[in-house]
Design a protein around this nucleic acid. Structure first.
Lengths: 202, 202
DNA sequence: AAAATATTTAATCATTTGATTAAATAGATT
DNA sequence: AATCTATTTAATCAAATGATTAAATATTTT
């Protein structure tokens, strides 16, 4: 029953937790060391610097985040099923990692370069473009730019996680209220997307 | 032709600029002093501390942000015109202040208390609730929770500003592309919202 | 103009923070 | 077991940072 977790891994997990919650600038290497229960020198022993450790953490965060959509849009599901899958999977993912959306969005503003390598899956966008064009030619859906389609989908899905404190206050909602609202959005968002896109509901 | 701007004001303007762009933790008082072209001691002379200055800046940011929606939802416009106004005004506002959405969202995570005083306009939400209920009873729109309505509207409008770096990379868009996409959303978002809500398009 | 008050400035302080060092300990290899 | 390598630790460093001080300068009041 030995916990098979190395110091190196412990540090990365702790770093992910603290960086994700507080952001790069507000995170102190000592916060990470404390969270990981290790000496601060071990952090540098394994990862050299705060910056290098951060790059690893944000790289993995972006990778995971990106993988979900790439898998869905490269799948053989019909468009309306892709939409549903997208919403369900990301709402579940963000519910399990509530600080991730704001972390990714915040830090990607300061790391515009780092994003390049990870976030670019041309296949995903090419597939999406083809599919939207084809369905429009077949008079199944209205004409829409892939960027607009994608923005609609991800905006409706991700923003409620980003703005939870704001919306909760403004709307006077409890945490439970908010969970229930998010659950309802698993159906509402696809309904709205499909209602807008399709000439006849599939 | 004298520039009638006091040191005190210069500092606040500079602070707003730097805080908004870099966030609280990454902003150094010396950054603000340099941006304002003043001695660092003047900052403390007028505002006592970095924290106090920050509270003023974020307070004004939240106030401006909130005022726009309160004005619209407390107006006498019909719902579909409110939607259009909301989208147009916020897209213009965020275009002029591109760092504001992410600043508000990021810092409101760390300042959940500060939000209370500023962001709560019960009138706005009460009006919205009443209007949605009434229009539903009149069989003009489908039934929808005010929170879901509001989330849809603000998500579609604000998120594209938050995620500009991410989306630009993923979709391979230039800055000009993005400006044009945002402009198109002034029509697309109300179309989508109204299409979903109204049984018959108004 | 003189005195009083307000503002600006350079210098400095104490703490925090990312990083390093060198010694101690643990683990592997011979 | 003895030697060598890898890991962990306490102590420390240098730079950065929020804040203050006291003197210099500007502005207002008398």
């Amino acid at each position: 029953m030995k916990a098979e977790i190395t110091t190196e891994e412990k540090i990365k997990v702790a770093a992910a937790k603290v960086f994700t919650k507080k952001g790069y600038a507000a995170t102190k290497t000592r916060d990470i060391a404390e969270e990981a229960n290790i000496n601060i020198a071990s952090l540098h022993y394994y990862y050299r610097s705060k910056e290098k450790l951060f790059q690893i953490v944000i790289g993995e965060a972006l990778g995971t985040f990106s993988q979900i959509m790439d898998d869905i849009f490269c799948s053989e599901l019909p468009l309306h099923e892709k939409i549903k899958e997208f919403v369900i999977q990301y709402i579940d993912f963000f519910s399990a990692n509530p600080y991730l959306p704001i972390f990714i969005v915040s830090e990607s503003q300061n790391n515009p370069d780092k994003i390049n390598k990870i976030l670019k899956n041309d296949q995903t966008i090419m597939n999406l473009r083809k599919e939207l064009e084809l369905l429009h030619e077949m008079k199944v859906i209205r004409q829409i730019q892939p960027a607009q389609f994608f923005l609609n989908l991800i905006s409706l899905t991700a923003f409620p996680f980003l703005a939870k404190p704001l919306i909760s206050k403004k709307m006077d909602l409890s945490d439970n209220d908010y969970v229930s609202i998010l659950a309802n959005r698993k159906k509402l968002i696809p309904d709205m997307m499909i209602n807008f896109l399709y000439y006849e509901q599939p």
